[in-house]
């Protein structure tokens, strides 16, 4: 591995890292990946990995969950109650999305 591998992974994982941290991560990752690499030595023969994943359905009924809509809305990073109210016009709730383009 080298620094550009770390940069590539950080880009894929959407993590901003400082130069210093990239170097530290490179060192740590080499150690950890070096350790886990020992699984190479295991002969797995023709065993298949188990993925016990299957669909489980429930009745499509309302009110299965109790949750607070207010708490969710309050926590949108840009939500501000006063502004929400002034623009909501009636009982709909307006969510302001950050202008980033």
């Amino acid at each position: 591995m080298n620094i550009s591998d770390v940069e590539n992974l950080a880009e894929l994982a959407k993590l901003e890292l400082s130069q210093e941290e990239k170097e530290a991560m490179l060192h740590d990752m080499e150690g950890i990946l070096g350790y886990v690499k020992q699984i190479e030595s295991v002969d797995v023969g023709d065993i298949e990995a188990e993925y016990p994943i299957h669909n489980i359905w429930r009745e499509d009924t309302k009110d299965l969950r109790e949750f607070s809509r207010d708490i969710i809305v309050e926590q949108f990073p840009n939500s501000q109650p006063a502004r929400l109210n002034s623009r909501s016009g009636g009982d709909g709730i307006f969510l302001k999305v950050k202008k980033i383009l």
């Binding site: 770390v6 894929l12 994982a13 993590l15 941290e21 991560m25 990752m29 990946l33």
Partner: peptide, 10 residues
């Protein structure tokens, strides 16, 4: 962050 990078790698 370290584990996210490892996970992304593997």
């Amino acid at each position: 962050r370290r584990r996210i990078l490892i996970g992304t790698y593997v």
